[in-house]
Structure formats: C-alpha cells, structure tokens
Amino acid sequence: MLQSDYVELEDRYGANNYNPLDVVITQGKGVWVRDVDGNRYMDCLSAYSAVNQGHCHPRIRKALVEQASRLTLTSRAFRNDQLGLFYRELCDLTNSHRVLPMNSGAEAVETAIKAVRKWGYMVKGVPEDQAEIIVCSDNFHGRTITIVGFSTDPVARRGFGPFTPGFRVIPFGDAEALRKAITPRTVAFLVEPIQGEAGVIIPPSGYLKQVREICSSANVTLILDEIQTGLGRTGKLLAEEHEGIESDLTLVGKALSGGFYPVSAVLSNNEVLEVLRPGEHGSTFGGNPLACAVAREALKVLVEEDMIGNAAAMGKRFMAGLRKIRNPSIKEVRGKGLLMAVEFTDIPGGARPFCEKLKANGLLCKETHNNIIRFAPPLVITEDEVDWALDRISYTLSSK
C-alpha cells in the first residue's frame, strides 16, 4: 500500500479528532523512524514524551516479550509477582511512600482528584461535597469530562458540558494568586511544573518553591502533574527537583513504559492514599504484571544509561542552537532539558507550514496553539544528532 492509501483509510473510517502530519510511520529505533515509503526522519516529538528512552529500546522490548510469554493480566482480584517490585522500585527512585497504578495520564489525574477529595473530607474536615481544587489557566491534564471542565481552552471545552463542579482557576506562575484563592474548602492545588501542551510555558524562578510553602502552611495538598515533564525530560528525574521541592502527589505516565505499553501512576505520601479503601477506586488493567515488568525495565534503563544526564547536556546544546536562528517572526525560544519550544508572532498559517517543511527535510515535530513548535526528541539523542537536527531546523526556520 502507498502512504496515501493509509491516509485515506484513516480519514474514511476514523473519527476526525486529530490533525496529524501526513506521514505514515512503520518503524522506529532510537531517535529515528521510517515511513511506509522508506523515508527516514528524526522524531523530535517522542510521542509527546512517551518515548523518552528512544523507539523500541531493546532492553524494554526484551522485558515485554519475556513477561508476555509468562503472564499478562490477573486483574487486582489477585496478586502478581511484578506489582510489589514495581511499587518498591518506583518509590525508592522517586522518594515516594505509596503508589497507585493506572493506565493513562488522564486516569492518573482523575485518581488524584478522587483521592484528595476523600482526604479533604476524612482528614482535613471539609464539609461533604464542598471540596475545591485550584488549577491553572492554560493547563492540560487530559481529556475526560472532569478535566476539560476545568480547562480554559475553548476547543477542549466547547460542546461537552455540563461539567464537574469544584474547581477554581488561577493564572499560571502567580504564587500570590494561589495564596488568595485558598479557602477552608481548598483540598489541593493541581499544576504542571512546566506547561507542555500550552507551548512549554516555564514559570518564574522560585515559583514552585513558593507554591510548596503556601500549600504546606494552608494544609493544601500539592499535586504536580509530571506526566510530560517527569522521568528525565527536563534534565532531572522529576521537574520538581529543579527547585528542590517535593509534592504531596506526583503524577507520572508516558515514559513510564518507554512507549511500549500504557502505564501511569499516582505517587503519594502516606497520608493521602491511605484514605482509599477496597472498592473505592480501581482499574481492570491498572497494575497488571505486563505493565509492571515493562515499567520496571523502562525506569532502569533511564537511570542506568544516564538518559537524564544526557537530557540536561543535550538540552543545553539544542537550546543554544535554537537561539542562534535568525527569523524576525520568532518571538521567543524557551525550554528546559529536552523540552523546548519556538514561538512565532502571529503569521499566516501559524507554525504548521514550518512543521510541514521540517518533515520534508527529514525531521518530525508538531505545532501547538497555532504559533508554537515544540521540540522534544528522545533522551538518547547524541551530539551529532542534535547538530543534524539544528542544521535542518535553522535552514527551515530561517527561510521565507
């Protein structure tokens, strides 16, 4: 089949809820992918940071195959020999007390919302059904009805109401706004350390440290959504480490499986997750042995192959190169580690035409919020590969 045949099949039979570039990928290794016509591209999106360890990492693939040949699913009606090991290794790595495993990032967010509400009623003493959670404008935490209900993106919200109550929205990066928004009914503050989907929006230095202090003094749980920023993407295991803080709940997913399997988790202190009792929350596939085996190996290669340190070093090299690009339409270049963005002023067609040209030049990335290009290659990228990417990005973005 031709590439156009695959595109036609998707367009004819699939729901029209995505606007992908017309490249049909059939193979991947490391930072490189190939399409069905044999063309080779550098992947600078990493499946929205789900493939931090690179495409088809051999150690993770081996763990997947070996576990799949033994046992894939028991449900949580029974125990399995991978779950406890996964819990211990993830807690040791992240300095957490408890883990609640789920499948997708959105499920992890929903899980955290349920847990902190229950904590608010059982521990903090908030009157039943009056708990409030503070969130930030321009957030992205997933696409369930509850989550889009506290989004400020009209595209995400339009036509999907009515929405779940109990959320207050404040500006991102404004610690004083958080302080003012807290009431006796506030049970949590849910925030991304860096807003990835919004266009790699980085808060002011010291913001997370202030947020931590405010939440602690007001007895409000701090939930950090590290589904995209966590697991090495910003040059630290978790983005919270850049300011030396620890949240009460941390949400991880995406790269937790290295792109092989849907796995997410809520990492928590003892106090919050201990309010849940049997039957109050769960998932048929959450914590299944295949997911646990894959995640265990994905975490090991991340640490043992120093992908986190590489992200920090290659991120500096990549950012330095992006900042040398001369184009009067470039408004700002920003990033941390290997999570970077180039924002343009309002230009006809937005950033999409640049993404199309980059595809033609052998590099895959994707626009967000119309006028921003996000660059987030796998953390295994080398110096030569960074330079290869910069040559093509510079040529493409500098041309008219």
Rank of each mutant, 00 (worst) to 15 (best):
Q3C: 09
E10R: 14
Y13R: 06
N19P: 05
G30F: 06
W32D: 12
D37R: 11
R40D: 12
D43N: 15
S46I: 02
N52E: 12
R59K: 15
V65S: 10
E66T: 01
R70A: 11
L71V: 09
D81H: 14
D92S: 12
V99Q: 09
P101C: 07
A108C: 09
V116A: 08
Y121L: 01
M122C: 12
G125C: 03
P127Y: 09
E128A: 15
A131W: 01
I133R: 03
S137P: 00
D138E: 14
A156I: 04
P162D: 10
T164N: 08
F167K: 07
F167C: 01
R168N: 12
P171A: 03
P171L: 10
P171T: 12
D174T: 03
E176C: 04
A177T: 04
T186F: 01
Q195P: 08
E197T: 07
A198S: 14
P203I: 10
I223N: 00
L231Y: 02
G232R: 01
E241C: 08
E241I: 02
A255R: 09
N269W: 00
E274L: 06
A293Q: 07
V294N: 02
E305V: 06
F318A: 09
P328G: 06
I330A: 04
G335E: 06
A351P: 00
G362F: 05
N370V: 14
E385P: 07
L397C: 05
